[in-house]
Amino acid sequence: MQPTYMNCIAELGVGGAHPGGLKLTKEVLKKEKIVASTKLLDAGCGTGQTAAYIANKYGCQVTALDYNTVVLEKAKARFRSMKLPVHVHAKRGNIEDLDFADNSFHIVLSESVLGFTDADKSISECSRILKEPGTLLAIEMVLEDSISDVDNLSEITHFYGIPHLKTTEEWINMYRNAGFKHIQVDKYKPNLESHNLENSPDFSLSDEIDDQLFDVLRKHHYYMKKYDNILGFRIFYCNK
């Protein structure tokens, strides 16, 4: 196993491993109209915390997709162990090349996923599989526009496996190019105050965990603080 950021999250089985965690997910979903007949794709479902929440709360038709088989198995185990009111369809797939027909979903939710992919491809795939009207909800990291003299972003892009850090403007243009007509953007600022138990992750460490993963955690923690003013987070509500 390569000690990458993504593998670290997968091996540790971190739930809600995206900015804002489940709390932000709930706030974002609250603004959408979701009924029992709504077809929703959680693209990049991770260990399935969000998909399980949606199935439980809305009883709609949820498909949970991830490319990483380690987290997908954890998601399946989570769905089996919970008494969910509806079946969650868990499926392995690549968001850059989705195995769904055109106009399949009312909502695609993507929580800190697109930025780790070839976003031109993945956004256009999300657009293709969405019905009209349909909504793409994306929580993404952005490069804050105010910063012009950042010369060494490569250490972040390399560490996280991000092809290209995009400004909010760049994201909006990509959504537009993929056929989204109305794009609303909300800013999200993580609460970095100490004693904020709500955002503090629970690490359930097994004895077999590779020590290298703790190196990854340490670097992640270091970069979070180092680039606190350069990296921001946005919620994009994109309507087709």
């Binding site: 995206h18 900015p19 804002g20 965690g21 800190s112 970095l192 004693h195 138990l197 955002n199 603080k225």
Partner: peptide
């Protein structure tokens, strides 16, 4: 103290 933390 808890370490400030978030995932991306």
């Amino acid at each position: 103290a808890l370490l400030p933390w978030f995932w991306i």
